[in-house]
Design a protein around this nucleic acid. Structure first.
Lengths: 147, 147
DNA sequence: ACCTTTATGAAAGAAGTCTTTAAGTGAGCA
DNA sequence: TGCTCACTTAAAGACTTCTTTCATAAAGGT
């Protein structure tokens, strides 16, 4: 996409006036971008097992260089997946479980079909009986306690 | 990444022998890649509201060209987010809610710290009392019913 | 002050994503 | 058979992401 700023820069949000921004999709896309890479998923996996760890320890354990670790850490922070904290000359990172939970439940809300139905019933295919008739059939808003 | 094959091609899985593949990270990264783009999130959002819809209807509603729709549909299929079905000369698409739920719970399992602890307790930071002491503190394996 | 350790930043190049235009495929209809 | 509709695929180019190498900053020990 476009964002190149210094960490908290978001593409869509930054340009459009607040009232017109899609909001949800922009933020969620940034969030999932943080997870859309094997290296970053490895980092997340490690941090999930260990609560908090020194940046260089994680880098060494995953066998990646220091600048590379730093790059991915930046994306992870921007995505709201990881928090970092300086202590002396070391930096510790850990999962931002609150933000993670918020984004996940925003996503499940999206899956549940929240928002205006758009091309609702009128634009359904001919053979339209795949799912049994239920007001909003599938996804449920369970999971808000995923932290 | 690398995958360019004809839709179901996955990078890591395809090359390494089955027993040695990282599995989780590779698949999850592909899955999240499908969600890491505003256009695709819009498609997913629409499909969540409507169960099933003609490809061209979704494209028109989102104001994107047909090839562009097709491109994103391919990534969505590869990510296990969307299923398509041909009927006559029209193609209908819908969310693959089973696959979505599987991937989401794989992710929450990862967040819960499943797998060997790696650099576990020995590598924790000095001021280590951010979270109250609980066996595996945060994320819970709730959500398997997210379809 | 100097030196060491650790983290971040910048630049450059390879690789990947995304979009458009144009061509190809499959299914229905004349 | 030919024509049209509804999609998919190919090719090319613009733009991003990712990685490496080199340089800078920040903190602490000597």
């Amino acid at each position: 996409m476009s964002r190149v700023g210094s960490d908290r820069a978001r593409p869509t949000r930054q340009i459009l006036p607040l009232a017109l921004t899609p909001l949800v999709e922009g933020d969620l896309a940034t969030y999932f971008e943080g997870l859309a890479n094997p290296t970053r998923l490895h980092i997340v996996e490690r941090l999930a097992q260990v609560k908090e760890a020194r940046v260089s320890d994680v880098a060494m354990l995953l066998g990646i260089s220091q600048p590379r670790m730093s790059w991915h850490l930046r994306l992870l922070r921007r995505a709201g997946l990881v928090l970092t904290r300086r202590e002396g000359r070391e930096v510790f990172c850990r999962l931002d479980r609150t933000s993670i939970a918020e984004n996940l439940s925003a996503f499940t809300a999206l899956l549940a079909g929240d928002g205006q139905p758009g091309l609702a019933e009128s634009r359904l295919g001919p053979a339209e009986t795949i799912n049994p008739p239920s007001p909003r059939h599938g996804v449920e808003r369970s999971l808000p306690e995923v932290i």
